[in-house]
């Protein structure tokens, strides 16, 4: 019994080690938390914007889908309305950005009656195939961008733009 007794010295050592450990942890934890913060950052679901277009109503023919989101420029908040040309390619949904790669006009599906199955830019006569690939010898220098697509409760969601995957 008597040899298990905690001496004053041992008691103080344990106590100080314990309290010191908590203090060190209290200082280190926030530092570690800051260091690994980018990893813990949750990916915002807000990257996808919900549109009013039902997925089961999409067909092979491109339709214009309007969607809007809030854009903040420094102190100025504005509601931006954007659009996409959406159609079904087999089972896959293709969403193309309507922004012409020439100088940024808005292109229209079958905008020129001479080319009923191409996208047409009224500004300088730029044309794109249904896949968004630019027709050679027209002003555009590249294919139309694509939007990431997703679905929520039967409605189409559009995400980030990426370079055309058909090109």
């Amino acid at each position: 019994m008597s040899n298990n007794r905690v001496t004053r010295r041992q008691f103080l050592t344990y106590t100080i080690t314990g309290v010191g450990g908590f203090m060190a942890a209290g200082m280190l934890m926030p530092m570690v938390r800051f260091a690994i913060d980018p990893v813990l950052q949750t990916k915002a679901e807000g990257d996808f914007v919900l549109t009013g277009q039902r997925v089961d109503e999409l067909t092979e023919a491109p339709v214009k889908v309007d969607f809007s989101y809030e854009q903040v420029d420094a102190w100025y908040k504005s509601e931006v309305t954007d659009a996409a040309w959406v159609y079904k390619n087999g089972d896959e949904i293709v969403a193309l950005s309507p922004v012409c790669k020439h100088l940024g006009c808005t292109v229209n599906w079958a905008g020129d009656s001479a080319y009923p199955d191409q996208f047409y830019c009224a500004c300088h006569g730029g044309r794109y195939e249904k896949t968004g690939v630019n027709v050679p010898n027209t002003p555009p220098t590249g294919p139309l961008d694509q939007y990431e697509v997703s679905e929520k409760d039967g409605y189409l969601m559009l995400g980030k733009k990426f370079a055309n995957s058909f090109a």
């Binding site: 012409c100 020439h102 100088l103 940024g104 006009c105 808005t106 830019c121 009224a122 500004c123 300088h124």
Partner: peptide, 13 residues
């Protein structure tokens, strides 16, 4: 609003 919309449609011209 209308002129901004026209700009969006015909930005390149």
């Amino acid at each position: 609003s209308l002129t901004a919309f026209i700009e969006q449609q015909f930005k390149g011209r």
